[in-house]
């Protein structure tokens, strides 16, 4: 594993790669949809009466957008990130120069960076709206928490979809299996209260953090927050390790 090469792969993927425009477009669409939600947040608040009791619910709205839309956007961006290269054979020119783990981590870093930046922009837009349009105080703490938690949450899905992309022999299979994976996670989450499977889904850890944005920060238990962050990091690490194992077993 070579950090320098990971950065080269990530940088190329984001700015010069064949999919860089596509990736940046997906990020842009995500930002745009989030902006639309915050722009029409008053209508949303009026539709959902419980939100009237929440002080500055705009971060909450944006976080719900990330929870629901985020996995779909990451699926669209990452399902064929690896399998496309293997299918066309372009990966051979890269793997003959760097190790496989650096390649995977470089790809992950590219996707993660794009979505982290997107989430940051969304958070800044939300803060600006909060400050200038809704005349609420600027909350730096909430902004930082929003960026950290949202990007970790999206990274869980990115690592999962990269794993599936590495296993898949072709793009079509990768798309179907990524959709199946998402479906399994959603079903596992909604199965029931006594269901332990929900702990295996990133959705659970994402939803657990909603309390952070629905009230003032000090009421939320920070132990719960750190626990959720820890499990999301574990989730990422497991899937990245599996991806690394999977690519080492592939005949390129």
């Amino acid at each position: 594993m070579n950090l320098q090469k990971i950065i080269v792969v990530a940088e190329d993927e984001m700015f010069n790669g064949s999919k860089s425009k596509y990736l940046l477009t997906v990020g842009g669409i995500f930002i745009f949809l989030s902006w639309m939600m915050i722009h029409y947040s008053n209508s949303i608040i009026s539709l959902l009466p419980f939100m009237n009791n929440i002080n500055a619910p705009h971060y909450l709205i944006l976080y719900i957008v990330v929870l629901i839309l985020g996995p779909l956007m990451t699926l669209i961006a990452s399902y064929d990130f690896i399998c496309n290269e293997i299918q066309t054979g372009s990966i051979r020119y890269i793997i003959s120069k760097i190790d496989r783990t650096s390649f995977i981590l470089g790809k992950f870093l590219a996707l993660s960076s794009v979505f982290t930046v997107a989430v940051f922009i969304v958070a800044v837009i939300g803060s600006l709206y909060n400050l200038f349009i809704f005349n609420n105080a600027f909350e730096l703490g909430k902004l930082i928490l929003f960026v950290v938690i949202s990007s970790l949450y999206l990274n869980c899905f990115i690592s999962g979809f990269l794993f599936i992309s590495t296993l898949s022999p072709e793009n079509k299979t990768a798309l179907i299996m990524s959709g199946v994976f998402l479906g399994i996670l959603i079903f596992a989450l909604f199965k029931g209260n006594d269901n332990f499977l929900k702990y295996l889904t990133p959705y659970f850890y994402g939803i657990s953090n909603i309390g952070l944005f629905s009230g003032s920060t000090h009421k939320f238990e920070f132990i719960e927050l750190f626990k959720n962050i820890f499990f999301m990091i574990i989730y990422n690490s497991v899937f990245l390790s599996l991806t690394s194992i999977a690519i080492k077993r592939r005949d390129l």
Partner: peptide, 20 residues
């Protein structure tokens, strides 16, 4: 149907993780 999907996904993962 849910079990079928889980089984199919498991088969997909294990089959493609097999050393070629």
């Amino acid at each position: 149907i849910f079990f079928l999907i889980i089984g199919a996904f498991s088969a997909f993962v294990v089959y493609n993780l097999r050393k070629e």
